[in-house]
Simulated scan of single mutants.
Amino acid sequence: MAGAIALGALAGVVGFIPLMVGLHLTKYATATSNFGHMSILIIALIVSFALMFAFAFVCITFARDFAMPFVLAEAVALSVVAIAFGIVRLVRK
């Protein structure tokens, strides 16, 4: 079970990467562009959810007994990384 939790936490961290990339790409969007800030962030959110669901699907397919700890660790890790990212950005300013 510890392996499932560790892999779930790793999957949660990987699931946050598209959100960071999307936030970085919003710096290059102009105010009048058709592909605005919100579009980039929504696509990043969809990619992040797709990654999270794909990891959960793989876990359910290969190790159904460990699916619950994996998915919970994945969600908690994503939340912790997002909160830590926000706090670090707030403290830097």
Rank of each mutant, 00 (worst) to 15 (best):
A63V: 08
I5D: 01
S39Y: 09
G3W: 10
E74T: 14
K27P: 02
A6H: 06
L25E: 08
A82R: 04
L51P: 03
D65S: 10
A67L: 09
L41W: 14
T26G: 00
K27V: 08
F55H: 12
A44D: 06
L45F: 15
F55A: 15
A63P: 01
A73R: 11
G15S: 07
V14A: 07
L72Q: 09
P18E: 00
L25G: 00
F53R: 13
M52W: 12
K27S: 10
A56M: 14
L51Y: 15
A54T: 14
V91P: 01
V88T: 10
A77F: 13
A63L: 06
L41I: 12
G86R: 03
A4C: 01
I40S: 00
L45A: 15
L45C: 13
F55Q: 05
M38P: 00
A77L: 10
M68D: 12
A11S: 04
L41G: 01
A75F: 14
R64H: 12
M38G: 09
A2V: 02
N34G: 11
G15N: 02
F53V: 13
A77Q: 02
S39W: 13
A77G: 02
F49V: 15
M52Y: 11
I42F: 13
P18A: 01
P18C: 00
G22A: 00
L41N: 11
M20F: 09
S79R: 14
P69I: 06
R89L: 13
M68A: 12
Y28G: 03
I46T: 12
I83F: 03
A75P: 09
F70D: 00
I60Y: 08
F62G: 04
A77T: 04
F49C: 15
M20Q: 06
V14N: 01
A31F: 11
F57S: 12
F53A: 15
F57P: 03
P69A: 07
V58M: 14
F35H: 09
L45E: 14
V71P: 00
V88N: 03
G22T: 03
A77R: 06
A50H: 05
A63H: 11
V71R: 13
I46A: 15
A9H: 03
A73P: 01
Y28H: 13
I5H: 04
F57Q: 11
G8Q: 06
A82Q: 04
H24R: 11
A29L: 02
E74K: 14
V13F: 11
V47R: 02
A84E: 03
A56P: 04
V80L: 11
L7F: 09
A56I: 12
L45I: 15
G22V: 02
G3Y: 06
V47S: 05
G36R: 10
V58G: 05
V81M: 04
T32D: 15
M38R: 14
A82E: 00
S33G: 07
I83L: 08
F70R: 05
K93M: 08
L41Q: 12
A63R: 10
G22N: 02
P18V: 00
I5E: 01
A44H: 07
I40P: 02
S48A: 10
T61G: 01
I43H: 07
V80G: 00
L90D: 11
A9E: 00
G36N: 11
R92T: 06
I83W: 03
L72M: 10
K27Q: 11
F70N: 05
V80H: 07
V71A: 05
K93N: 09
A75K: 12
R64W: 10
L23N: 05
M38Q: 10
N34Q: 05
